[in-house]
């Protein structure tokens, strides 16, 4: 599998399918509003998705950020 930055935007149908899968019945107008917010945000989200986080050390897990703060701005 090769990861590429997305070249197409999700559609209303994409979100509807996700909603149905979760058992949510969302009115079309609300779905369109959510889609508009998602599309607006998409470029930044793609940047985040493109970030490579290493599998080998120094490994970062969510708790790493909290440990860094507790230790005064560095890791033990």
């Amino acid at each position: 599998m090769v990861r590429k930055l997305a070249t197409t935007e999700p559609t209303e149908e994409t979100l509807r399918a996700m909603a149905v899968d979760r058992g949510l019945d969302i009115e079309p107008e609300r779905l369109r509003a959510a889609l508009a917010m998602h599309v607006k945000f998409r470029h930044e989200l793609d940047q985040l998705r493109a970030v490579r986080l290493e599998f080998l050390p120094p490994y970062i897990e969510p708790a790493t950020a909290v440990r860094w703060i507790e230790n005064g701005g560095r890791l033990p």
């Binding site: 996700m18 917010m37 970062i60 860094w68 703060i69």
Partner: peptide
Amino acid sequence: KLFIRSQFTSADDYLKALRARHLLQLDFQ
């Protein structure tokens, strides 16, 4: 609007965001 948009956040995006925090912390360090 926020609440409905939030229904479509994937777990991998969320975890990437939580982990990527530390990259910014390293800049501050």
